[in-house]
Structure formats: structure tokens, C-alpha cells
């Protein structure tokens, strides 16, 4: 019951956030300087053709009508028509790019989650000793680097130096992502660089505090194998904050994807957003940014629910007293 109440409350707030963001994004893009129709048709367009296009796009309608039309289309799954690529429905290009980004994000998760948890646990168990100092230094250093800096270092080593991975993440025409899985490695590693610091630090500190708990000391003193105690008893309890951090960073990861995808030329949501901004393609900018926000909000919501579900203190709040 407690859980359901929390669920409903968070869901309501999540929807409210998305609504507020959609208004914000819409008005933000509205203030873009210059006449949209003029931009689309170019400087040589006649006044009549500009006026005709304005009329066709409904640019002269009142602001709230345009917002409602846009938001309504969004809810029905119609993202509108691209301005830069005249006549192209955004839907036809958008979801494929989002798919690529999701695959990239999942690959990155696959890299950094086990890696950071493992090193975090190791550092936590060896608290204050040399391995701990080295792991936390590496974490602190890589966490501070912007994604494109770690990307450049990775490119220099693996693509230019060792020549074992491609320099850019380009899918040749006529092929799909699955035939070019090697293009995922360096972008995913660049993200791993940044995320490793956050996640391993969190894992380390929760491990340190759990290892000091009485039940762990009891288990060790009872003579249970140390490995068993660490992985079965301690890790189980020390994972909760880590899961929260990973979830909370999901949306942030999509922000970071913009930088990584731009560096590698990876055909995903990030580079689509960037090119939309460069070409001042308003409907496309709106679609991209709203979608990134959506992922961010949804990831936070899911994390919150997962946390509540995994944490017995919240799940069984009634019986807590």
C-alpha cells in the first residue's frame, strides 16, 4: 500500500515535470532569433513564398495554439516534419538514431557497471591500503575528464597507435549497427572512463561502512570464508547506493552521449541533436531535447521505485515500527 502510494505520487510528479519541460523547451526554441520560414527558404526567397510557408507551418497562429498542436502531436507519436531536411518526417529518422544510442548506452553500462563495482568492492575491502589509494586516485582523475578528452586519449592509443579499433564510428551505407559492432567499443570506453569514478567511489564508501557492521564481523569471526562474506553478505547490502547512483546517472549518460557521439561521429541521438542545433532545425531540436529530458526523468523515476522496492524499510513501512 505504502509502495503504491509512493508510486502514484512519483508518477504524477514525473508527468508534471515532463509537461513543464515541454513548455520550457517549446518557449526556449521559440525565442530563436530570425524568421524560421526565411531560414528554411534561404535569403533569395520572395516575400510571398515566405508568407505562404509561414501560413502552411502555422507560424502566425497564437503561441498557445502552436504549443498545443505540437504537444498534441507528440502525445500521438507524431514528432512533426524536419525543417532542414524538407519533407522528411522526424519519425522516420529519429527512432533509428535513438536505437543506436540505446545500444551504445547499454554497451557502456555493460563495461562500467561490473568494472566499477568490482574495483569499488576491492578498494573498500582494502580501505586505507595501497590498492585503495590507487583505485580512488584513478577514479578521481578519470571522473574529472570531459568525455571527449578521454575519447581522444583512447583514439590515440587504440586507433592511431595500436590500430586495432576504428577511429570514427561510422556505419557504411547499406549496413547496420550489428554488422559494425567494433564501432561501439571506443565510445563506450570513453563513457566508462567518466562513470567509473562515480560508481566505484560510491561502491567503495558503502562497502567500507558495511564491512564495519557487526554482522560482517560476526561472520568473519565465525570462520566463514572471507570471499563468501564479502560477496554474499556485504555486497548484497552495499549495492543499494550503487544502484541509485547508476540509475541517477542514466539521464546524465545521455547528455554525455552528445559529446561522445560528436567526437566519434556515431550516428545516434547525440549527434542528431548537435546537427539539429547547427542547422537550426526547430522541430528536430524540440524532439531531441524533449526525448533526452524524458529519458532523464524516467530513469530517475525508475531508480526511485527500484530503490523503494529493494529497500525493505520502505517496502514494509507499516511493519517498521
Amino acid at each position: 500500500m505504502e509502495f503504491l502510494k509512493r508510486f502514484a505520487k512519483r508518477l504524477g510528479f514525473t508527468l508534471l515535470t515532463i509537461l513543464a519541460m515541454s513548455v520550457l523547451i517549446f518557449f526556449l526554441v521559440e525565442i530563436m532569433p530570425g524568421d524560421v520560414a526565411q531560414t528554411v527558404l534561404g535569403q533569395s526567397a520572395t516575400e510571398e513564398s515566405v508568407a505562404a510557408l509561414r501560413d502552411r507551418m502555422g507560424l502566425d497562429d497564437p503561441l498557445h495554439e502552436r504549443y498545443l498542436r505540437w504537444a498534441g502531436g507528440f502525445i500521438r507519436g507524431d514528432l512533426g516534419e524536419s525543417l532542414y531536411m524538407r519533407g522528411v518526417q522526424i519519425n522516420t529518422i529519429f527512432w533509428r538514431k535513438v536505437g543506436h544510442s540505446v545500444v551504445l548506452a547499454l554497451t557502456a553500462l555493460l563495461f562500467y557497471v561490473p568494472l566499477s563495482i568490482l574495483f569499488g568492492v576491492f578498494a573498500g575491502v582494502k580501505e586505507g591500503k595501497a590498492p585503495d589509494a590507487i583505485i580512488s586516485f584513478v577514479g578521481l582523475a578519470t571522473m574529472a575528464l570531459p568525455e571527449f578528452v578521454s575519447g581522444i586519449i583512447l583514439i590515440t592509443v587504440f586507433a592511431v597507435g595500436l590500430e586495432i579499433l576504428p577511429i570514427a564510428s561510422i556505419i557504411p551505407i547499406g549496413e547496420n549497427l550489428w554488422q559494425n559492432l567494433d564501432i561501439l567499443v571506443l565510445p563506450a570506453l570513453s563513457i566508462t572512463f567518466v562513470m567509473f569514478g562515480y560508481v566505484s567511489r560510491m561502491q567503495r564508501s558503502s562497502m567500507v561502512s558495511v564491512m564495519k557492521a557487526d554482522y560482517i564481523r560476526a561472520a568473519i569471526l565465525k570462520g566463514m570464508p572471507r570471499k563468501y562474506v564479502i560477496f554474499r553478505h556485504a555486497l548484497k547490502n552495499a549495492l543499494l547506493p550503487t544502484i541509485t547512483i547508476i540509475g541517477m546517472n542514466m539521464g546524465w549518460l545521455f547528455g554525455g552521449l552528445i559529446v561522445v557521439e560528436t567526437l566519434f561521429g556515431f550516428p545516434g541521438l547525440g549527434s542528431l541533436t548537435m546537427s539539429a542545433i547547427k542547422t537550426r532545425d526547430i522541430p528536430l531540436i524540440e524532439a531531441c531535447v524533449l526525448f533526452i529530458t524524458f529519458i532523464f526523468v524516467f530513469a530517475t523515476f525508475t531508480t526511485d521505485m527500484l530503490y523503494a522496492f529493494l529497500n525493505p524499510r520502505i517496502r514494509y513501512k507499516r511493519g517498521d515500527a
Binding site: M21, G251, F254
Partner: peptide, 8 residues
């Protein structure tokens, strides 16, 4: 406001 990454 925090629902949109600062970089974006």
C-alpha cells in the same frame, strides 16, 4: 529544472 542535464 534538474530534469534537463546542464550540458544539454
Amino acid at each position: 529544472l534538474m530534469a534537463i542535464p546542464p550540458l544539454v
